[in-house]
Amino acid sequence: MKSAIAVRGLTKTYAEGSAGVKALRGVDLDVEAGELVLLMGPSGSGKTTLLSIMGCILTASSGSVHIAGREVSMLSEKELPRVRLEHIGFVFQGFNLFPTLTAAENIELMLDLKRVRGPAAKKRSRELLSQVGLADKYDTFPSDLSGGQKQRVAIARALAGDPGIILADEPTAALDSQTGRAVIEMMRGLAHQRDRAVVIVTHDSRMLDFADRAVRLEDGLVVLSDVAEMPSILLSTPMPLGSGLSLA
């Protein structure tokens, strides 16, 4: 089976003065469809750099990146947006919704990029909002939504492109624990029920309960690659279970 994401020998060096800063020092990682993988590690360990390279918005210094079986590390700046559009959906810590557009219009913007327009786009955005439990927020602007609702709109927007891969950067960091749990359950549903490859960068060890696998980075290297291998201290504070949201 082809991995949704496969990276081999990935390095990334940022230029800083005369010396470079090595953010990644040779990372190998596979993420399969239907799998929820956490990227964990201390600040500066290279999590976000790895996520950015897997998301085709940052190029590696060396190594290879395969997205849905296609080598993308050699693609030009002009070709990468097409890969992002076809295969990848992003969920951001700060939601990154367009404040002047309604919830539906935020989703329709993504659909517009995919050339789905007019009544078809409106129908699809309504469906997606229903799937994340926000059918009644169709015409609501982000400023009138709670943090959790904003993140759910962001997830619906990421799904609008029908991507095989969802990459999320600290999606629960700006949310309270209850809402954060609902969001992570939703993302687990995307992996397990919708067969998406979901990769989440997080510092929140409570997410380990919901992950299929956790990858721990330190100083640009993968040091652990399984939940079972995580130190007990990281597993000691699971999120409380409750009536979380799941994808309809």
């Binding site: 918005i57 992002r84 559009l85 992003f90 990029l113 927007r157 492109g161």
Partner: peptide, 11 residues
């Protein structure tokens, strides 16, 4: 927002 658009795949 423009950065987000580009990340979403907008040329």
């Amino acid at each position: 927002e423009y950065g987000t658009l580009k990340a979403m795949g907008a040329p």
